[in-house]
Amino acid sequence: MSETEKQSATRLASQWIASRQTVLPKRLVAPGPDAAEIEQLFQAAAAAPDHDLINPWRFLIIPAHKRAHLGELFAAALLERDASASNDQLEQARDKALRAPLLMLLIVDEAKGSADIDLHERVLSAGCAVQNLMLLAHAMDYGSGLTSGKALKADSFRAGLGLGASEHAICCLSVGTVSSRKPFKPRPEVPQFTRIW
């Protein structure tokens, strides 16, 4: 690759990364990625840095026929926190499972591999995997977004997913076609998040 081609590729990659925007799951509709595209997305995730190649994270895909069951886990988690939750609040909790054509949970295992590799490093590796996946989804012209919340830490939710004691549900990741976008939020300026020691 010539120097001119490198500069052009760098400029294009920089613009593409900067143009990625989080899209809330309620704004993500069908069609979502097909099986071949999903495979590509996970191959991009697999390129994340991974100390000792322990693969401390995994994606739990929630297929269409399991969405209602996941919705019940969200509702149970809400009742675990607030026994007086209204029927409307419970329906809103259930509805979280029904958005976006591709829905998955990111799970990090703090016990997998060497105990010398800190949980923070495992979560950072998982974050890199997510970003790789989201950037490729953006390149495929899909939108994506992350959501989290107290439900992911609820005992009933964890038990319903069959998570082990060392496993942490970090966030939900949704991918689909963008139905509408919010105005683009400005990025922080570089001096806001850099310092010279």
Rank of each mutant, 00 (worst) to 15 (best):
S14N: 11
H69K: 12
R94Q: 07
S86G: 07
A68K: 09
P31Y: 03
L103E: 07
L163S: 13
R99S: 10
L135V: 06
A36N: 05
S86Y: 03
P191M: 01
A13V: 06
W16C: 14
A154F: 00
P31I: 01
A129T: 05
D141Q: 15
N132A: 06
F74R: 13
G149L: 04
A83I: 07
S19I: 02
L133A: 11
I61F: 13
A139T: 05
T194N: 11
W16S: 15
R81L: 05
G71K: 09
R81T: 04
A137K: 05
E167A: 05
E39D: 12
D118I: 06
Q21D: 07
D109L: 06
R99L: 09
R99P: 01
D52T: 09
V29Q: 12
R99F: 01
L28K: 07
P188Q: 15
L161E: 08
I62L: 04
C128V: 02
D95S: 13
L73H: 10
G145V: 03
E91P: 02
R11L: 12
Q43P: 06
L79K: 15
F74K: 12
A115H: 13
L28T: 03
A115R: 13
Q192D: 14
Q40M: 07
A77Y: 05
G149R: 08
L79E: 14
H120R: 09
P25L: 03
D50E: 10
L103W: 10
D109A: 08
Q92H: 13
A115P: 13
G143V: 01
L119W: 09
K112L: 12
S144F: 08
A36P: 00
R122E: 08
A45E: 03
S19V: 02
R67A: 13
R67L: 08
S125G: 11
S86K: 02
P183M: 03
G145T: 02
Q21R: 13
L119T: 15
W197R: 13
L106E: 04
V23Y: 13
A45T: 03
F157V: 06
T177V: 02
L152S: 09
S180F: 04
P63T: 14
G145K: 07
P188C: 08
L105E: 14
L98P: 00
R11E: 11
P33A: 03
L98V: 01
L60A: 04
C128P: 01
F157K: 11
W197H: 15
E3C: 01
V175D: 04
L106H: 08
F184D: 05
R11N: 15
D88E: 09
I117D: 15
A111Y: 00
N132F: 01
A76H: 12
Q21V: 07
D34Y: 13
S156I: 05
P186F: 02
C172P: 04
R94N: 05
G160F: 04
A85V: 06
E37C: 02
L24M: 07
H120V: 07
S114H: 03
P49M: 04
Q40Y: 00
G143Q: 10
L136S: 04
